[in-house]
Measured scan of single mutants.
Amino acid sequence: EAHFQVQLEQLRSMGFLNREANLQALIATGGDVDAAVEKLRQS
């Protein structure tokens, strides 16, 4: 989780407030914030 701290903060600042969902999306996308946003929008 600490590995994705910067990305988690970016997602939070973009309005994605579900930390667990954000973390799962980042893990699934290897930390790619843009891909994580797409994944979160689809769910």
Rank of each mutant, 00 (worst) to 15 (best):
V6R: 08
L17R: 07
Q7R: 04
S43Q: 15
E20V: 05
R19H: 11
E38W: 03
G30F: 04
T29L: 06
D32R: 10
A2Y: 14
N18Y: 02
H3M: 12
L23S: 10
E20K: 13
T29D: 04
D34I: 05
D34V: 06
F16R: 02
Q7I: 02
Q42A: 13
E9L: 03
N22D: 01
G15C: 04
A21R: 07
F4C: 03
E9N: 06
K39V: 07
V33C: 12
T29F: 12
Q7F: 04
T29R: 04
H3W: 02
H3R: 12
F16C: 14
S43Y: 02
V6T: 09
E9M: 02
L11K: 01
G15V: 01
G31R: 02
Q10A: 07
N22H: 00
L26C: 07
H3S: 11
K39Y: 08
R19N: 12
F4A: 02
E1L: 04
Q10G: 07
N22P: 00
A25Q: 09
V37M: 09
E9Q: 06
L8R: 04
E20C: 04
R19E: 13
D32V: 10
D32T: 08
D32K: 13
Q10K: 13
L26A: 01
G31K: 03
E38M: 13
E9P: 00
F16V: 01
V37Y: 02
H3N: 14
R19M: 15
L17H: 03
R41N: 14
L17G: 10
Q24S: 08
K39C: 05
V33N: 02
L26K: 01
Q5E: 13
G15T: 04
S13D: 14
L26R: 00
L23W: 08
I27H: 14
K39T: 10
H3G: 10
G30K: 12
A36T: 12
S13P: 03
N18M: 14
A36E: 00
A2G: 11
I27N: 06
G15Q: 07
Q24C: 06
D32S: 10
V33Q: 05
M14S: 09
L40N: 01
Q10N: 12
A35Q: 13
E38P: 10
L8A: 06
L8H: 09
A25G: 04
F4R: 02
D34S: 07
R19A: 12
E9Y: 02
V33E: 03
E1S: 06
V37G: 10
E9H: 07
I27R: 09
R12I: 11
L17C: 15
R12S: 13
L23E: 09
L40I: 01
E1R: 03
V37F: 04
L40P: 00
Q10M: 07
L23N: 15
A25W: 06
N18A: 07
G30Q: 11
E20Q: 07
R12L: 07
D32H: 07
G30R: 10
Q5N: 14
D32W: 02
G31A: 05
D34L: 05
V6A: 11
R12F: 05
H3Y: 15
L8M: 12
V37W: 03
A28G: 11
G30Y: 06
L40W: 01
L26G: 00
A35T: 10
M14Y: 11
A36H: 00
E20T: 12
Q24K: 14
A28Y: 05
A21W: 05
A21L: 10
A35S: 12
T29N: 15
N18K: 13
G31D: 01
Q5D: 10
Q7Y: 04
A21M: 11
N22Q: 03
